[in-house]
Design a protein around this nucleic acid. Structure first.
Lengths: 202, 202
DNA sequence: CCTTCTACCTAACGTTTGTTTGAAATATCC
DNA sequence: GGATATTTCAAACAAACGTTAGGTAGAAGG
């Protein structure tokens, strides 16, 4: 089945979308410029009118993957009403992450799956964007801790590593056509907040 | 920095180890037979004495990645003393997973990172091994639920998806040279059992 | 309508890839 | 030590790769 690039505004966007889909399915090195071009109903040489190199396409795909998620979570956090409970805030943040993650899944999957495989210079250039998103979560969880909402023996950074790990893994199995993202977010928030065991088993 | 294959018993093992390291760092398509051979201090043609194809190397690397983890968790579960508490059992299972995951991290990382990028026939051939491991966890978590240890609103399969997602993400940031795997396992078990929030916030 | 700009195509280049085959080197066995 | 088996090397092949440069078609502007 040959993936088709979605019909977006410009050829440049079409190339990026097609690239994201192909990179996540075949890895970076497994996707040739000819394959990307074919997916856009173009020829490989044409891609160089829009992008300087394959590496530049990759760099932008990786950045888009993170920026979408970052913007969504930032918005979720700032939209929270003043009297929101901690569980409500957590649900909002997780919901923001999951909605963006799963709605832009070609870009986000591409990032999650191939980040560690790409040339070092490109990894390094994506690290800033990644660090900014991590800092957003770390800030949020640190607030929860400062407010006395997190258990004293829970480190916010460790919690973030675990939480993002679990959330990003949904890319491998969750299908938005079959399930409801908000329900998923609620379940994950509940589990991370309260755990899986019945009380009294600790 | 040119990775060196660890000194193992046979050339065949050396090729597999080198391949796992290279696949996880560069993806499947990003690693040539010449690179693998060089890593083993051989030439590319020599690899064909031991393996029929690059795809065969890949298939074996992927299988090893899962089999190590499966064996460790199975052993952890069967070694649990008769009177073990549920939190103890959970700790054991998680510890088994994490120890294998992080000790054989070249193979397990290769699997986790590149599984979705490899040719379909190879994905399909690895699926059986994956399904068997998933079934091991599902069985264990179902026992916990049947024993009334899990919350009634927690689905064992969903819990497994979340748990394995979180555990496998440790491959990206945990360094066994800097941290203690058993401590990590204990923390993860505790978090997944009891959650991150102070009681009373649900 | 003519000129200029935009966006794509084509052909080609040098390099890299997985693989094969026969030769040579090394290891093992009697 | 010589014969045999195992293991590796070297050279080569066809195909594929990222990229370049010139050409062309169509759109836009005056």
């Amino acid at each position: 089945m040959q993936p088709k690039a979605p019909q977006t505004d410009t050829s440049r966007d079409r190339i990026l979308s097609a690239s994201a889909i192909l990179f996540r399915e075949h890895g970076y090195a497994g996707v040739s410029m000819r394959k990307i071009a074919e997916s856009c109903e173009m020829k490989a040489g044409s891609l160089y009118y829009h992008f300087a190199s394959k590496d530049q396409i990759l760099t932008e795909v990786l950045n888009i993957g993170i920026q979408k998620v970052h913007a969504a979570v930032a918005r979720s956090l700032s939209d929270a009403p003043a009297g929101a409970t901690v569980i409500d805030k957590l649900k909002r943040a997780i919901s923001g992450h999951l909605h963006a993650l799963l709605e832009y899944s070609s870009f986000t999957s591409a990032n999650v799956r191939i980040f560690r495989q790409v040339p070092d210079e490109i990894q390094n250039s994506n690290l800033e964007v990644r660090r900014a998103y991590e800092a957003l979560w770390d800030g949020f969880l640190q607030e929860l801790q400062d407010a006395g909402e997190l258990r004293n023996d829970v480190d916010p950074r460790s919690l973030r590593l675990m939480l993002i790990g679990a959330l990003n893994a949904t890319l491998e199995w969750f299908d938005p056509a079959l399930g409801n993202i908000s329900d998923l977010a609620d379940r994950y928030a509940d589990m991370l907040a309260n755990g899986a065991l019945k009380k009294g088993d600790s």
